[in-house]
Nucleic acid binder design. Sequence first.
RNA 1: GCCUUGGUAGCUCAGUGGAUAGAGCACUUCUCUCCUAAAGAAGGUGUCGGAGGUUCGAUUCCUCUCCAGGGCACCA
Length: 559
Amino acid sequence: MTPQELAHALAQILAANFAARGGDAAEIAVTEQDTQLERPKNREHGDWASNVAMKFAKRIGTNPRALAEELVVEIEKIDGVAKAEIAGPGFMNITLDAASAGETARRVVEQGADYGRNDVLAGQRINLEFVSANPTGPLHMGHTRWAALGDSTARVLRASGAEVTNEYYINDAGSQMNKFGRSVLAAALGEEAPEDAYPGEYIQTLGAQVREQLPNLAELAAEDRDAALEQTQELAYQLQLAEIKDSLERFNVHFDVYFSERTLHAKGENGEPSPIELSIDRLREQGHVFEEDDAIWVRTTDFGDDKDRVFTRGNGIYTYFAADAAYYLSKMDRGFTEKIYLLGADHHGYIGRLTAIAGAAGDNIETDITVLIGQMVNLDGAKLSKRAGNIIELTDLLEWLGADALRYWLARYPADSPLSLDGEKVRSRTNDNPVFYVQYAHARTCAVDRNAEAAGITREAFAPELLTHETETDLLGKLQQYPGIVAGAAELREPHRIARFLEELAAVYHRWYDNCRVIPLGEEPVTDLHRTRLWLNDAAGQVLRNGLDLLGVSAPERL
RNA sequence: GCCUUGGUAGCUCAGUGGAUAGAGCACUUCUCUCCUAAAGAAGGUGUCGGAGGUUCGAUUCCUCUCCAGGGCACCA
């Protein structure tokens, strides 16, 4: 009996109760969402608790306790339910019989890596854009947070049935790229940096690489400065982008699409209009375009933006917003039902205009676009900025802290909470480091497995009714919660829920390990209890592994 | 000024209208001849920033307010 099955049964009981009073069950429209059960904090409150009696009493036309009294009678008839009691103002506390709860261990083992997968987002095609850092420098701490959160979000969405494309938008057009090119060229030629140059040391490194790969650069620059700049800029861009991609892969973050802004500006082979040019026509057809002061505008205020936005400037040049619009249309054309943008708080001013683009393009701004804003992250109190030059690169972080610890720590907090991390704590291999606490629990399940095998304990017998120890029902309860946790994390786009769950699961597992032996002591005989516990041990290991995988964190068999 | 995100234990932070608001750390004690002590057990901690409101019930929702971060370009 899973909480999902219980919720389903409860919904039917509630609807039947209403129907029996002469009501139209459709009128109160009970769903499993309404009857979802929670795991009570206090174990005296049973295995699962429901508050539906309080929620529905008024609608049904009675009072909570009276309704609960009728419901518990029916709940107790459910196969697998040991008892149901009323408590407090109308809570119903449900206790499962041990065999029914224990079934979970076998279910988890049999479903393996699929345990936890669900279909709450089935049928959705989601475009998830994140990181999208300019290719003018290495990724820093802020990008690293979005990389960890974005990739974990994608994994959680997929586990809940969505089809997800991870996308990185490359701002490879425009003045920042020119500035980048001039900075690297000066470095390559050994000249003094231009006044507005990028300050980071990586510019010097890129300059050296360019000099090496373009041996005639100095001559070319003397002859044709623009040509030298163009070649330098292109090469530096490719080098930098490759470095970004490489560091992301090492961070276990994979993008399905790297989308170049240039492709939006590019005309067709035979001079066909560019995607940006086409997009203005499409928005005009929708009736949201107007001209004023020589500029072409989109009336984004029709969709809640705080001001209208310029598409084409008075001098005929497209704004960045124009590229954003064309990019959005590209996502639409590629058939995504929902476009999610994961942006840093410094981009929060984009929400209005991005949403407005969606509306102007004819999308539903409530359901087809989601802009998630993440707050800044500090490491050891230092705020890092690429432009200021005091960067800590992703590659440095990987070396210092390791991909697992970094991903775990960055994914364990909601995106909208400002975060300050203590580098030494992230790095520590002690029990005050949750990533090691969770990984250790997993490694322990593997150690038990190895020892069980050596002791000749197999999973040939499974007697779930024997799993009656307090720590066993706790552990089973946690395992039963997992699919719901994944579904909730997906619906809310909050992968940190996975991490928090894993920490709880690890704690319950350690407690169980301390109380219940899988391998008998000394000369004691192996019984079905030991064999059944092996199933439970393996189930715990499986869920720890599945959860860590959603966070992109490894689950070592030994630490 | 306007928009936006935070304010929860000494610290870092969880908490999708429910029962006595939680976890880890820090502090004090215990527990390894026996499956990994990177673990477990015990000990106390709160004006949930403040004031109103909605509700049977508010840390959670609404309004106002105080404090802090971020944002308000025919820049990219």
